[in-house]
Each structure stands twice: as C-alpha cells, then as structure tokens.
Computed example of a mutant assay.
Amino acid sequence: MSKASDMELFLAGVMTGSHTTRQRHIHQAKTIRTAIAERWQRDNPWTWQRKHLLWFLDHRMDDRAEATRYYYRLTIQLIALRLGKPWFQS
C-alpha cells in the first residue's frame, strides 16, 4: 500500500455513510498511516498491531479535542473491522 488512494481501497468494504463521512475516514486513515509509518516504518495496515493504533490514540491524539479523538476512534474501529480484529469493537 504505497499509494495514497490505497487507504480508500483498503477501507472501501467496511465504510458506510455519506460521501463526506467516507472522505473524513479516508483522510484520517491516511493520517494514521503516516504517523505509524514515521514511528515504526509500517505503512501497510496489514502489518499493524493493536499497539500501533493505541499508540496513535495515546500519543498523537492526546492534545486534541474530545470530538476529534472520537472521530479518530471511529476510523480506527473501521480499520480493525477491515483487518478482521476484535480490538476496538463497541
């Protein structure tokens, strides 16, 4: 997954909602991918572990507004769903 549009393909099967909502999830997933790639050199979501996503929430979102953290948690739930992992099921 080296191209920017790959996150859209990765999440396509699990995303629902309006066009705006889908675009927000794609944008946030790209932000998550960039942060994890910088920290652990893992730019492919298939190689991510739970600790990578928790690190993102704990360290990259710690100074953000609660609403922002909420929307990123929703995106992370979609990523976990796509990976077939029960990490962040509500």
Rank of each mutant, 00 (worst) to 15 (best):
H25S: 06
F56G: 06
K3S: 13
H25V: 00
I76Y: 00
D6W: 11
Y72S: 02
L83E: 11
A65Q: 14
M15S: 06
S90V: 11
E8L: 08
N44H: 11
Q23V: 10
G17Y: 02
A35H: 03
H52C: 03
Q77V: 05
K85F: 00
E66D: 10
R39A: 09
L81H: 06
W40N: 14
I32W: 01
A12M: 07
I32F: 00
Q28F: 04
A29W: 01
E66Y: 05
F88T: 12
T31M: 09
L74G: 10
D6A: 15
D63E: 14
Q49S: 11
W48M: 03
W40Q: 11
Q49V: 10
E66I: 13
R69H: 08
L54F: 00
R64N: 11
L54Q: 11
S2K: 13
K30W: 01
H52W: 00
E66L: 13
S2A: 11
R50F: 04
M1N: 09
P45Y: 01
Q77D: 01
R42T: 09
R42M: 12
L83G: 08
L81I: 02
F56C: 03
T21C: 04
T16V: 13
Q77R: 15
R73K: 13
A4W: 02
D63Y: 00
H25R: 10
K3Y: 07
Q89Y: 00
I26D: 00
E38T: 06
M7D: 04
Y71P: 02
R73F: 02
Y71R: 12
G84Q: 08
H25P: 02
L54V: 08
G13F: 00
T47D: 15
M1Y: 08
P45W: 02
T34N: 08
L83V: 06
F88V: 12
R82S: 05
T68R: 06
T21L: 08
M7S: 11
R33N: 06
R64H: 12
M1L: 14
A67C: 10
T16L: 05
K85A: 13
Q23I: 07
V14T: 12
G17Q: 04
H59L: 07
E66T: 12
Y70F: 07
H25W: 02
K85R: 15
Y71A: 09
E38Q: 14
T21H: 07
W87P: 09
T47R: 12
L54D: 13
H52S: 05
I26R: 04
L83Y: 01
I79W: 00
T16C: 02
D58N: 14
L57S: 04
H19M: 07
L74W: 01
L57W: 00
N44W: 04
W40V: 05
E8M: 08
S18A: 15
M1C: 12
A80T: 12
F88S: 09
D6I: 09
T34K: 14
D62E: 14
R60D: 05
W48H: 06
I36P: 05
T21G: 03
I26Q: 04
T31N: 09
S90D: 15
S2V: 11
H27A: 14
G17S: 03
H59R: 10
F56E: 01
V14S: 03
M15T: 08
